[in-house]
Simulated scan of single mutants.
Amino acid sequence: MTPESSTRPSAAERHPKDLRRPTPQDSGLERRAGEPVRLDEVDHRLLAALADDARIPNNALAASVGIAPSTCLTRVRRLREEGVVRGYHADIDPVLAGRPLQAIIAVRMQGPTRARLSAYLRQLAELPGVLNVFLLGGAHDFFLHVAAPDADGLNDFVIEHLSTDPDVALTETNLIFQHLRAGWY
């Protein structure tokens, strides 16, 4: 038994990030101090392969970037520990999941509420049908990417969760006609 295997597993090991509620650290809300993580060409190739298929087995990942499986495992573990890889997620098709209507809702908060934007961001992320929440600089405080079963469901969401909230000053709802997940990495 190695010293590493004899220690009690951390909370992250007992509850992988893809199976537990995201924390501010998972979602990148906390500002990180210090220098950006130094990444070499192999790290970038690993990230590109993981972005393309997060379920790729370690031996196939290693082969795809031209390194040994043990080296691959060590590098991916380091990328996770450094926060470069924040988690692994299922890409769920809202249409096939019964929520074919997507929208971006711009939200502007009342003046006094702006001191609590980070806390409000987390509240918005918990609302049903919310896919993404963006805290913004500019005319609006948030963009919400939501999926709803139909126009009535979207209308109900805006009224029940946003328009009736006294902290919300304004909402603007923009329908999404097409969406494509970008493979930015």
Rank of each mutant, 00 (worst) to 15 (best):
R116Q: 12
N155P: 03
A139D: 15
L124R: 00
H89Q: 09
A151W: 07
S118Q: 08
E126C: 02
H89I: 12
A106M: 11
Y120H: 13
Q102A: 06
R114I: 07
L154I: 04
A147C: 10
L117R: 08
R86I: 09
I104L: 11
G137E: 12
M109E: 02
L127K: 02
R108M: 05
V95G: 05
D150K: 06
A103E: 04
G87Q: 15
L154M: 12
F143Y: 15
G87W: 11
H140D: 14
A139R: 10
H140S: 11
D156G: 10
D150Q: 08
I105T: 03
G153Q: 11
G129S: 10
R99I: 02
L117F: 10
T113H: 13
A119W: 10
L96R: 12
F142I: 03
V130D: 00
L96I: 11
A148V: 06
G87T: 11
V95T: 13
A125R: 03
V146T: 11
G83Q: 08
V133C: 01
R108N: 08
Y120S: 11
Y88R: 15
L135Q: 05
T113M: 12
V107P: 00
P112L: 09
R122S: 08
V133R: 01
V95Q: 14
N155I: 06
E82T: 08
A103S: 13
L135V: 02
V107M: 01
